[in-house]
């Protein structure tokens, strides 16, 4: 579980996060949603430790991140997996080598065991064996996301962060990636935090949703609660499209 308590963050006098508190639970897909520029990416980067916060606490199962030294942060990060918006696979390595990389860096096992684990992860994300020897540039965007997920779970992380996981994917592939993230979260009891403004994803896998508006936490609830909220900003954001307006009407 990750707890964020009274977090403030400013950049050159611009107050981006204002007293944000939230709880991200184990075994659930926790989603941070909000409009562009609302502060959701800053919140996620602060939780990971890529931004140093001005005030507040970020506790990973009771371990407060701002109190940690760089060495301790590095150790904590070995418990973290991350899926980047652009996949961030290493160009100079093949698909299999990308997934083996974290194992080679940190696992004390034989090369055969590492390869077996990497193959298991790739099979788990439903990636065909023919692509294992290819460089990332030669596979599709959806396949790259799968490889990135496989790499993120290779070291059996306790925490998984996904930054816009469906960015650049078609709706069908997006759905597959969403379900994959959800299934992995439940199966391995991971604390997953997804940063997204894709409403399809929110409706599909949003078990614990945090809505950030103008740097503040404006609402928290589940995908089922979202239809019955009396928050104008949230409604304007979630039900912006004609499709979702109709969905809300039908749900009412």
């Amino acid at each position: 579980m990750i707890e964020v308590k009274h977090v403030d963050k400013s950049f050159d006098g611009n107050h981006v996060l204002k007293n944000v508190s939230a709880v991200f639970e184990d075994g659930k897909t926790n989603m941070i949603i909000g409009a562009s520029g609302s502060g959701k990416t800053v919140l996620m980067k602060s939780i990971i430790g890529l931004h140093r916060i001005d005030n507040g606490q970020i506790e990973y199962d009771g371990r407060n991140l701002p109190d940690m030294r760089m060495k301790e942060i590095r150790l904590l990060r070995r418990e973290v997996g991350m899926l980047f918006q652009g996949s961030a696979l290493f160009d100079s390595m093949t698909v299999l080598e990308n997934v083996m990389y974290p194992l080679e860096m940190f696992a004390d096992t034989t090369k055969e065991e590492m390869e077996a684990r990497a193959r298991y992860c790739l099979q788990h994300v439903d990636l065909k064996e023919q692509s294992y020897g290819l460089p990332p540039s030669e596979i599709s965007g959806g396949m790259q996301k799968r490889v990135a997920i496989a790499r993120a779970i290779a070291l059996q992380p306790k925490y998984l962060f996904c930054d816009e996981p469906n960015s650049g994917l078609d709706p069908k592939t997006s759905l597959i990636i969403d379900r994959l993230i959800h299934d992995i979260t439940v199966e391995f009891n991971i604390t997953t935090i997804i940063n997204s403004h894709d409403m399809n994803s929110v409706m599909e896998i949003g078990e614990n949703i945090i809505f950030i508006n103008k740097g503040e936490k404006a609402w928290q609830g589940s995908k089922d609660d979202i239809f019955h909220v009396d928050n104008q900003d949230l409604n304007d954001f979630v039900f912006a499209s004609e499709l979702y307006k109709k969905v809300k009407k039908a749900n009412a």
């Binding site: 890529l50 904590l76 991350m82 980047f84 918006q85 961030a88 696979l89 290493f90 860096m105 962060f161």
Partner: peptide, 18 residues
Amino acid sequence: GTMRITEQIDALEIMGVN
């Protein structure tokens, strides 16, 4: 530089790699 802008360096940092 390309590794930096394509977030590959961030990926290494998140893994806990120097």
